[in-house]
Computed example of a mutant assay.
Amino acid sequence: MATWKKGFRKIPAKLLTKLEGFDERNVRVIAGKVISSDAVDSGLYQHLGLSTDSLEVGKVWTIIPPQSSGATAKKNSEGWTVVRKDLPKFTKYFYQDVPIYGDAARNGWTTAAIPREVYVRDQIPPFLFELEIEVKEQQQDGRYGVVFSITDVLDRDTTSFSDDLLFALNLLQECTGVSDVAPGSSQSVVFTSSLDWELFPPGDLDDLVDRLTKSKDGRGGAAPDKVRERLELFEQFQPTEYLKGMGGNDHYIGAKFADDLVAFENLKYGNALYVLYGDWEQLSQRPRSELLKLTNAQFDRIVHRRGWELEFAKLMQTELRQRGIRIRIGRNVRRRQAH
């Protein structure tokens, strides 16, 4: 079992002092540690894929720490919820299948949208931070110098920087027993602090798949089969535009159904679909870390569990109806009316 300190309540003072000496906006969470082969053999770093076979100078790999690594690792994979009782309640719709006229055997079932007054819940999505492990060197006494780092680069100019940094430090500390910071340019890194969005009009599905899966330099990006699957889902609700967002290793695709109704997904992780409500033009300029920290009055997160497509369909039908948009869903029918 690991015996190191598990985490911090606040950013350590020595790291804050260190940050003041950086003259750039991007920051990495990265630290080195000297590890013996005995510690590796004991299974102390097994959760990171560090074993006798991988303990070889020059080896580099990434991993999302398993939830069993600790409380921060679990939040990193699942997210968490904060009930905001300091804010007024708002109306939210819940969906339930009910028998028509009280007799399902005779009349069948229908889906009812039930309004309820609820507290705002800050549903913090999973960060899905990846850890990079690099076996950097072997020392004369046989021990190994290993570098651990969070692959995402943090932007000091974002409003969530302090929270993001504390979370990343705790994740690295919890999983490895060490934590530190460095300027973003101090290593070869991928800058993921902001997203570059492109908009595409609806059109031929094959053409859309091709355009949404290729990067600007023409190289391949997301898996075409997965993109097609999402497009076919979005197509049922007749979007006005399709979206592609690129930021470092992140690749998003989405669809815009109204100025204040957008659905998108991160294809790198593919664990949930997000439906945003609000000013999309303004929201799309936010860094990823801020975009996914809106209150649940501003977005819904639909986790990819059994039946999630039906959950998305019910949500979209209600949201489009509230905006005065009627659609007819059919294999070869595309009709959209606003009134």
Rank of each mutant, 00 (worst) to 15 (best):
L205Y: 06
T151L: 07
L231F: 03
Q139F: 09
L172G: 02
K216S: 15
N170S: 01
E132V: 09
S194L: 14
T151I: 00
S179N: 06
Y242F: 07
L205N: 09
A105G: 10
D155E: 05
T176Q: 02
T151N: 09
A105L: 06
S215I: 14
D180M: 04
E137P: 02
V118H: 00
P202Y: 00
V227F: 01
G221P: 01
T213P: 03
A113P: 01
L208C: 00
L195V: 15
T213H: 07
V147Y: 09
A223V: 12
N170V: 01
R211G: 07
D225S: 09
R143M: 07
Q123F: 08
L231C: 03
L154S: 05
A182H: 10
A223D: 14
E134A: 11
D217K: 12
A182S: 08
Q138M: 07
P239A: 01
D225C: 05
D225P: 07
Q138W: 03
D157N: 15
T158D: 11
F191L: 14
L208G: 00
W197P: 04
L169N: 02
F191A: 13
V189E: 14
S215Q: 14
S188V: 14
Y119Q: 07
V118S: 00
L199N: 13
G184W: 13
K226W: 12
Q173S: 07
R143S: 06
L154E: 07
T240L: 08
E241H: 12
F161I: 02
F237I: 02
E198W: 12
E232C: 04
F127L: 13
S194D: 13
T176I: 07
A223W: 14
G108E: 00
F127M: 15
D155Q: 02
Q238W: 14
R121W: 04
D152I: 04
K214G: 02
L233D: 03
N107I: 01
Q123S: 13
A112N: 04
V153W: 10
L131W: 07
G145P: 02
T110Y: 06
T213S: 08
V181M: 08
Y144N: 07
T192N: 10
T192M: 08
A223H: 15
D152W: 08
V227N: 00
R106C: 06
P183R: 05
E229F: 07
E235F: 12
